[in-house]
């Protein structure tokens, strides 16, 4: 029996879809069977980020309406045998699906796959409620800025109201240079505010945009910083103890030494 995670954030644009695609890829590289579900009905984008847009024939809506069975609706990833996508319908909207239907899809998928990752739409309305309906756990994605962290706090509250207490935090797009200058909150600041378990810090990395341009999830490129970070997140999800690298602002003395050495 697998486990279903809803990937959510509250605020849009913090990288839920990127995280879902890359975490799914990283888990499949580690030998796990994975289905990623696009729960953003009407605004589908997980398929294009993963480069599978031309292969989508059926969507979760077709499964719900009985046009095809679940297995047939799954799109196999181009490079990974273990990775499948269940796309969202582009012509329907969030109100055309019920939480109970999502729960049923997740239950069925968990019987065959190790991981089900549900890419939630932004917001706290029905789209989010649907995405969370079938989840056993949540991955909350935030960026280290005031707006995203505030919304993450709200979404954590809503998850806990639903009795979803298995919550892991990913801090996305951390800019190490800005952290060093004291102009961006670091992982400790964000965890201090949100008080949930941190399972990964993804550094700001141009390779993320390049990989979604090409439709090839980053996790297979061992040289990108962000790719290595995603791999570590996947390993932590599998229960490995891997320390999270520090991107701390140095104190004035070590900062001075570092600066002297670097110049």
């Amino acid at each position: 029996m697998g486990k279903a995670f809803v990937v959510t954030s509250g605020k849009g644009g913090v990288g839920k879809t990127t995280v879902t695609a890359n975490l799914g890829t990283a888990l499949s590289v580690l030998g796990k069977t994975v289905v990623v579900i696009d729960a953003d009905i009407g605004l589908r984008n997980l398929d294009i980020v993963m480069g599978l847009e031309s292969r989508v024939v059926y969507t979760s809506m077709d499964v719900i309406q009985g046009n095809c069975d679940l297995k047939k609706a799954l799109v196999k990833d181009r490079r990974s045998e273990n990775l499948h996508l269940l796309a969202a319908s582009q012509k329907d909207d969030k109100t055309s699906i019920q939480p109970e239907q999502m729960r049923k899809i997740c239950m069925e998928l968990k019987e065959e796959y190790d991981f089900v990752l549900i890419d939630s739409p932004a917001g706290i309305e029905q789209g989010f409620q649907n995405a969370a309906a079938g989840a056993d756990a949540a991955v909350v994605v935030t960026t280290p800025d005031v707006a995203a962290v505030r919304d993450a706090d709200r979404i954590i509250g809503l998850l806990q109201q639903r009795d979803l207490n298995d919550i892991s935090l990913i801090i996305n797009r951390l800019d190490q240079a800005m952290v060093k200058r004291g102009d961006m909150m670091d992982q400790e600041d964000v965890v201090d505010i949100l008080s949930v378990r941190l399972i990964g810090v993804i550094p700001e990395d141009d390779a993320v945009v390049v990989s979604s341009n090409r439709g090839l999830p980053l996790a297979l490129e061992p040289n990108a910083m962000a790719a290595r970070a995603f791999k570590r997140v996947a390993q932590r999800l599998l229960g490995e103890e891997i320390p999270i690298p520090e991107f701390r602002e140095p104190n004035w003395f070590t900062g001075l030494i570092q600066r002297l050495l670097n110049s």
């Binding site: 200058r181 102009d183 909150m185 670091d186 900062g255 600066r259 110049s263």
Partner: peptide, 20 residues
């Protein structure tokens, strides 16, 4: 780099502390 460092000495509070 020195410029950066001086700026940090002169500045009262870093913007991330304000954010927090």
């Amino acid at each position: 780099k020195l410029d950066n460092l001086l700026w940090r000495f002169l500045r009262r509070e870093s913007s991330k502390d304000v954010a927090k």
